[in-house]
């Protein structure tokens, strides 16, 4: 088996890299694929929290590299889905504890026995970023429709470009707020995609459900009702090669909204 190694990166912090990693990983595992999530944010680990695995971590990636344990021992199985495993970051070490070469080696080993290896990249463009992308052959760049996030994403795309091993760079636009786009207060999906000039793999609406799902340590893809959960499940489908249309975020959800929409259209015709 030769799995795919995908790095999830963004440049800017706080745009949802870790949430995206947790959700795409969970969604792919739900589809029956074997997935390993690697948290490479040494010193600031969070992926364990989003998956609710913080109490189960015994060994970390640094323990593997410094040969205090075997790679297999450091993999923590997800509570709900044994297809999903986490290789946690060390909380007490910094980025220099790991080299790009060592991370690449870990990715090589993991992809022999898994369908997907998802690498959650730390913010920034320094060593941590270089480490995280070292073993990857694909990249998902996460951004939000805000200027600072887009600028940083552009920088990341520029840095990924010359890397020959990375054959695919795709954009995931997170925290989209359709009501702000409607009033032209926020850049639209098309605006961002046009500026960054890379293909879209997903559009995730802002969803308060993300907060509660983080609180519970249960990724939102496990919530069948949530719109963001559906959007992330669609991203997983696209990664698997399916052609899934992007969610129409403008679509009225309830009966009342539909009626309002009909009247709005009538009014527009008149």
């Amino acid at each position: 088996m030769t799995g795919r190694v995908i790095v999830i990166t963004s440049g800017k912090g706080g745009v949802g890299k870790t949430t995206t990693s947790a959700n795409i990983g969970t969604a792919l595992a739900k589809e029956g694929y074997k997935v390993v999530l690697i948290d490479t944010d040494l010193g600031l680990r969070n992926l364990d929290l989003l998956l609710g695995l913080e109490n189960r971590i015994v060994y970390t990636i640094v323990d593997v590299i410094e040969e205090r344990c075997k790679l297999k021992q450091a993999l923590v199985k997800d509570k709900k889905n044994p297809n999903l495993q986490l290789l946690a970051a060390a909380q007490t070490r910094d980025k220099s504890a790991v080299s790009a070469e060592q991370l690449k080696e870990i990715c090589e080993k993991l992809k022999e026995t898994n369908d997907f290896v998802l690498v959650d990249c730390p913010a920034g463009i320094e060593q941590g970023f270089q480490n995280a992308v070292a073993g990857a052959s694909e990249a998902i760049v996460v951004t939000t429709p805000e200027m600072s996030a887009i600028r940083d994403a552009d920088r990341i795309i520029g840095l990924l470009g010359p890397k020959e091993e990375i054959t695919s760079v795709k954009l995931l636009l997170n925290r989209v707020r359709p009501n702000l786009i409607k009033t032209n207060e926020m850049m639209s999906v098309d605006d961002v995609a046009e500026i960054l000039e890379i293909p879209l793999v997903g559009i995730i609406p802002e969803d308060t459900g993300i907060i509660t799902s983080t609180n519970k340590g249960d990724p939102i893809v496990n919530n069948e009702e949530a719109l963001a959960g559906k959007a992330y499940r669609n991203v997983a489908q696209r990664i698997l090669g399916e052609e899934v249309p992007f969610l129409d975020l403008d679509e009225p959800k309830g009966f009342v909204e539909k009626i309002k929409n009909v009247f709005a259209k009538l009014k527009a015709k008149v």
Partner: peptide
């Protein structure tokens, strides 16, 4: 579209 038109 109201006030925010320019901001985007």
């Amino acid at each position: 579209p109201v006030i925010g038109e320019a901001s985007k």
